[in-house]
Simulated scan of single mutants.
Amino acid sequence: MIHLEHVTKAFASGKGIFDVSFSVEPGMVFGFIGPNGAGKSTALRQLMGLIAADSGQATIGGFDCWVETKEVKRLVGYLPGEISLPGDFTGDHVLQLMQQLHGGDRKRQADLLERFPFDPKTKVRKMSKGTKQKLALVGCFMKDAPVYLLDEPTSGLDPLMQERFLTWLEEERRLGKAILMSSHHFPEMEKSCDRAALIKDGRIIVESDIHELIRSSRKQYTVEFGLAAQAEQFAIQVGATQKQQRVSFLTSDQLTLNQVLRLLTAYDIRSIQTATDDLEHVFLHYYGEGDES
């Protein structure tokens, strides 16, 4: 349903996206992960027909996103990363305008307002960031579209609203919607996405099933030794950090768990702990803790 094929869009600053390809099929939530400036929003704007690619092609539902942008926009519900709404409009006025521009089901709108409640009589300029986000979510999803492009959809939402959003997203996925979502919120990506792509400096560095992506990451372990001298010796062997009788290290292609276990048989071991696998560890694995975010 959503296809990017070798899309490149370069800006004068050197930023942009380069040779980006991926697909999102109906009934799939696809996560797009990367630090600020990595190219996530640029890719979504390509799909919305807001900017033209230098090369490659972006299509939704078989329509070219730049050449046939009107047809594409009929198929898509779009939530931009930066919510910009008329400050003197009330929530009701914004939703009425969206209804006129994009259509929308009244019953669906009422359901969304019940899930993401706010005072629709309040003017936008008086709304908090979270309230503006709820307004934008209702405006996006009240259009019962087959495709949704969501740029940081839970930004500003409290934990309860985040959970309600994930529940809504799962219901939409089960209805066969194709959903592309960029986010920095790793727990929500783990819970909601079927596949994910990590983008760095405008290039996709890995794309995989979300659970395979997590399983393939480096794992962190902490071993407690009976003696500090043993901990020091083991730390030297694996090139790890030592703190008294504890050594923490990451497994990798060069240091597998089997190799570590063979080394540990020579020592008095008190305990072995492993960090929970999560998407944040995957992110740090590919980007490095020293990279800017």
Rank of each mutant, 00 (worst) to 15 (best):
S155G: 08
W168H: 15
L97A: 12
D64G: 03
L166H: 11
K134W: 09
P80V: 01
Q99I: 02
P80K: 05
E170I: 09
A136V: 09
D105V: 01
F283P: 06
I269H: 01
R246V: 11
Q133G: 04
L135W: 07
I17A: 08
M181R: 04
G87V: 13
D144C: 01
V238E: 09
Y148K: 05
W168S: 13
Y267V: 02
M48E: 10
L101W: 10
E172L: 15
G103Y: 00
G87S: 14
E25P: 01
Q273P: 10
A231G: 00
G139Q: 10
M161K: 06
Y78S: 07
E71K: 14
L175Y: 09
L149A: 06
L47Y: 02
M28L: 02
F116P: 03
P35E: 00
F249G: 00
L264F: 07
I210M: 03
Q237G: 10
Q133P: 09
E163N: 15
R74P: 14
R215Y: 13
M127H: 04
S217C: 07
Y148Q: 03
G16Y: 03
F141S: 05
D151A: 07
Q96Y: 14
V76F: 08
T42R: 07
L137R: 01
K123C: 04
R74E: 15
H93M: 15
E68Q: 12
M28S: 06
L180E: 00
R125S: 11
K15V: 09
T251P: 02
E292Q: 12
G37D: 09
K200I: 11
T8E: 06
M127I: 06
L198Y: 03
L160F: 14
P86E: 02
F186V: 03
S55C: 11
Q109R: 15
G62R: 07
K121Y: 13
K126M: 11
G103F: 00
L85Q: 05
Q100N: 12
P86M: 03
R218M: 03
F32R: 05
E280Q: 09
A275Y: 06
E25A: 09
L149D: 11
G290R: 14
S155W: 11
C193G: 05
P80E: 02
G81E: 11
Y221A: 01
M189I: 15
Y148S: 04
I17D: 06
F118R: 03
T69W: 12
K191R: 13
E170F: 07
V67A: 15
A145Y: 05
G103P: 01
E188N: 04
Q273N: 15
L213H: 01
G77N: 10
D268N: 13
R106K: 14
F283G: 07
L95R: 02
G202H: 02
E232A: 12
L149P: 13
